[in-house]
């Protein structure tokens, strides 16, 4: 199976307080970039689907990772090549001036060129939280889609049984390949991904894998191609315009109340929540 995984770098979510706004624009200099966690889960899922979990040296398919960004975003791609992806493509753009729709349209062109059996993506990026690319891409391609996957079972690499957590249980969708699937956090649990290549008894370590040093060095020799955005879509104008950024207001100090009676009164009269 050939799988295409689009991924995005995001400002380190653990250091969100470093994000600064200047004159209505985000200041990105000095930020530490990390792969979007949901995209990392997608890469892990793709790797699990294209290997025998008990003998991972021999690949049973191909994983191609794609990102949209400037030259230095190749760091993110190489990190994924280190963990096991086979090939990488960078679509040359800035970090902003694109939106989910541009990305989805460009990806459509890339998918038509690469002809993967499956596009696996994170359910959303943790910076903009838009969560649109997977769905838009499926629509543009006219492919079936399953979103927020918590489990995936490959049926002979011809179709996928995709589990998604809903209130009170799990809903299971069968999608025929080719398809677009977006993944949620639980996809990286030890037994969330099942394929014909891996014995059903095999349990993966929880979470995403990390790269051995030998793999990090070998990743430098794996193919990494650059593609111009204009070669993928003639209309690169974003539909969403960002007019202004502002930081959330600083938290105000709380007030102390004497007793429960005062608390209830003030909740009623001032906060108006009861």
């Amino acid at each position: 199976m050939k799988i295409l995984v689009p991924l995005k770098r995001v400002a380190d979510p653990d250091n969100a307080n470093k994000v600064k706004v200047n004159a209505g624009k985000l200041v990105t200099t000095g930020l530490e970039w990390k792969p979007n966690p949901f995209d990392e889960y997608a890469v892990e899922t793709a790797l699990r689907l294209t290997e025998n979990g008990t003998a991972t040296k021999t690949r049973q398919g191909e994983v191609v990772v794609v990102t949209f960004g400037p030259k230095d975003s190749e760091t993110t791609l190489r990190a994924m090549l280190g963990t096991g992806a086979d090939r990488a493509i960078r679509v040359d753009t800035g970090d902003d001036q694109i939106d989910g729709d541009v990305v989805a349209r460009a990806l459509k062109a890339l998918v038509e060129k690469e002809k993967p059996d499956l596009v696996l993506c994170g359910k959303q990026a943790v910076d903009g939280d838009s969560g649109q690319v997977g769905q838009q891409l499926a629509e543009y391609l006219g492919w079936p889609q399953a979103t927020f996957a918590g489990s995936i079972e490959s049926e002979g690499d011809k179709a996928l049984l995709v589990g998604r957590e809903v209130d009170g249980g799990t809903i299971k969708l069968r999608v025929e390949l080719p398809a677009v699937v977006s993944v949620d956090l639980r996809i990286v649990a030890p037994k969330s991904v099942k394929s014909v290549h891996t014995p059903a008894t095999h349990a993966y370590p929880e979470g995403v894998r990390f790269a051995a040093l030998m793999a990090i060095m070998a990743a430098k020799k794996k193919p990494l191609a650059e593609v111009k955005l204009a070669d993928l879509t003639s209309d690169a104008a974003p539909k969403i315009q960002y007019l202004d950024y502002e930081l959330p207001p600083a938290r105000k100090a709380g007030v102390k109340v004497k007793d429960v009676t005062e608390l209830v009164t003030r909740l009623k009269t001032e906060a108006k929540v009861v």
Binding site: T75, R78, A79, G82, P205, G207, F210, A211, A212, L213, I216, M217, K220
Partner: peptide, 18 residues
């Protein structure tokens, strides 16, 4: 360099998780 930082991440994850 980039590969030092990736290796650093590997060692940290190994230390924290395993």
């Amino acid at each position: 360099r980039e590969e030092h930082e990736q290796f650093r991440k590997t060692v940290r994850t190994f230390a924290q998780k395993e």
